[in-house]
Design a binder for these strands. Structure first.
Lengths: 187, 187
DNA sequence: CCAACCATGTAATAAGTTACATGATTCA
DNA sequence: TGAATCATGTAACTTATTACATGGTTGG
């Protein structure tokens, strides 16, 4: 139930409306936790009912500003310190790799090439983001910097892997014995 | 709707029952696409209704063996060659990083330390898997080898990142200027 | 004979997506 | 005055999780 904690986390930095939160989900959290508008509004209502946030002000156009409560902060803290993050168990790109054998070799190579490109452009987009974000806001953007570095390393790793995997397809399919010099084993 | 394609992909290698497929989801696809038993049985029924698989045989204990049909193979192929994989947009571990500022520094450091440990033990588990899997089965395990290498590189990257991020917490919070020598920028 | 394993399914609930519906305010 | 933006919500549907329910077969 991490959407709940994502909302609490954002509100722990500053109060915000559903609309404000959506913008945060689309910018700062875009690569980390996706949420739709209907999810956010729904979750805010549930959080308010549970007493973890309150409507602290109402503005023009029916705007409702939400504040995190002490109970909300306690729940955020409990989540961060007492629960383990769920491991990622779904990766569509990688799922496809399992079934590349059903394609012609040239098609499989094309897929891995496209993967490398996607990773490279993801990397470039993060570099761009790095230059454009105004660092120095709150703690959130300070830690966001750490997440961005993760993204940079991740996309770099993905590209390298995809290029390596592409070369494996060309190499003789002799099984595990063929450890590439470039393999993770070398680290 | 990748569960559907995961099932088709597995059946493209060999026919299987729902029970057999579940074992495959728990072993080969464990780190790549998680599915529950009720999802698998439900999906098989839907696939059969759609004509993408057929019940090719019935065995003891009500066992139903499923075969992929030509329409099923066509759909698998369409998915692999004509659609783009969905990017991962949810990463709970990384979401938590954004909110580490709400914790005491020692707690934040503990979190990143635990992340490094989790990555390291994931890496070790994959190394173990690498030694125990009998390579040389079908195309599926050949490509599974590629996915395993991805896992090895990924967990290595995660551990390195978590250790780096831990050091960042100790370093002065001067903002973006403090590029670590270890940063992705050095590559 | 009984434990382990094989084997399939349903029900209830939760989480996530897509589309729709509505309207106020600001500013050029 | 009209476009862009602010702002909230609901409905229908799909996907995923958890728990339950049932029973057959095999092998020590």
């Amino acid at each position: 139930m991490s959407l709940r904690h994502a909302v609490l986390g954002l509100l722990s930095e500053r109060s915000a409306s559903g609309y404000d939160l959506m913008k945060l989900f689309e910018t700062s959290l875009a690569h980390v936790w996706h949420a739709t508008q209907s999810q956010v509004y729904g979750e805010l209502a549930k959080l308010a009912a549970a007493g973890l946030v309150t409507v602290s002000a109402e503005g023009p156009r029916g705007r409702k500003e939400y504040d995190i409560t002490d109970a909300g902060r306690a729940e955020l803290r409990r989540w961060l310190t007492e629960t383990e993050p769920e491991r990622i168990r779904r990766n569509e790109s990688l799922l496809r790799v399992f079934f590349l054998g059903t394609l012609a070799p040239s098609e499989a190579r094309r897929y891995l090439g496209a993967e490398a490109e996607r990773a490279a452009s993801g990397h470039a987009a993060l570099r761009e983001l790095e230059r454009n974000v105004d660092w120095g806001d709150g703690a959130l953007s300070h830690h966001g910097r750490l997440a961005l570095e993760y993204g940079l390393r991740f996309t770099a790793m993905q590209e390298e892997w995809a290029r390596w995997a592409g070369r494996q397809l060309d190499a003789p399919a002799e099984g595990a014995s063929a450890a590439a010099p470039d393999s993770a084993g070398s680290r």
